Simulated scan of single mutants.
Amino acid sequence: MTFTLATWNINSVRLREALVVALLRNEAPDVLCLQECKSPLDKIPVEQFRALGYTHMIGRGQKGYNGVAILSKLPIVETAAADYASLGHARHIAGRLENGVTIHNFYVPAGGDKPDRTVNDKFGQKLDYLTEMRNAFHADRPEKSIMVGDLNIAPREDDVWDHKKLLKIVSHTPVEVEHLAQAQDAGNWVDVTRQDIPQGKLYSWWSYRSPDWDAADKGRRLDHIWATPDISGAAHGSRILRHVRGWEQPSDHAPVFATFDL
């Protein structure tokens, strides 16, 4: 079985319903994981998605904030929805496909503006969230699993436009990178995107604050696809659809894709 999976922080699925439809129509991934849906689950506009063959959806919704959903052409059964750091946020959903593959969809807290938990509670919440992810993967080592989402951290030097300038900027600070690495190591996760594209600058997010995001190209790779070692070798075809960031009224994130032969 070959299937293609995509992850995309949509920044309001109701506001950008047409963009989701365009992506599904143009690229036709078998599974699309969305973050920051900003909608209760029963208010997500699923009719056009279903008309395109995405007849299965699992998720966790929240009015105006957060929210994660998995749209799928393939049958998928919900298996978990964790509330790490006890934030009461809709930030995780997991489901299992009929081939036994479990898909985790995460929206890790952004962490606010100041990388100091003594003056910024949101940064502390982000670190605590990552710590609890690590602990969960230690306690129940994942197998035959894929983990995707907006993890809100660009871990490598070539995952940001300027490593030195961003060392004190939330999303690329050493303490965040270390926390993410610990969560990755705990689950023995393989970074599929970098497995396929091991060298070079690679971004999935460009700030709305840049009036000409494409020319300035001050991006960060915040969106990730990981897999457990038992299936990571079956992954290929990784790509980031940069041009989608240039669509009308876009999300500030671009979709990330990978294909698995399983």
Rank of each mutant, 00 (worst) to 15 (best):
L52R: 13
R14H: 07
L262G: 04
T7H: 07
L32E: 12
P109C: 03
A110N: 14
L97N: 03
D159L: 09
E176G: 06
L74P: 15
I153G: 12
D42C: 00
R134W: 10
D223S: 09
K218C: 00
A94M: 00
P29G: 04
M147D: 02
R60I: 12
Q48I: 00
T2F: 03
P45G: 00
R60V: 13
L166W: 05
K165N: 08
L262I: 07
A235T: 12
V119R: 13
H179A: 11
E248P: 14
L41N: 01
W213T: 01
I76W: 15
F49S: 06
A254S: 11
Q125L: 11
S171E: 02
K126Y: 14
N66V: 04
G53L: 04
N11K: 10
Q184R: 12
V46S: 02
F49A: 09
G149C: 06
I153F: 10
N99C: 14
V21H: 12
F257N: 02
G200W: 05
N9R: 11
V190F: 07
M1T: 01
A216N: 08
T193K: 04
T259S: 09
H243R: 14
F49I: 03
E176T: 07
T131M: 14
V148G: 06
R117G: 00
Q249R: 15
F106A: 00
Q195H: 01
V13R: 06
N11M: 05
L130Y: 15
P174D: 02
N9M: 07
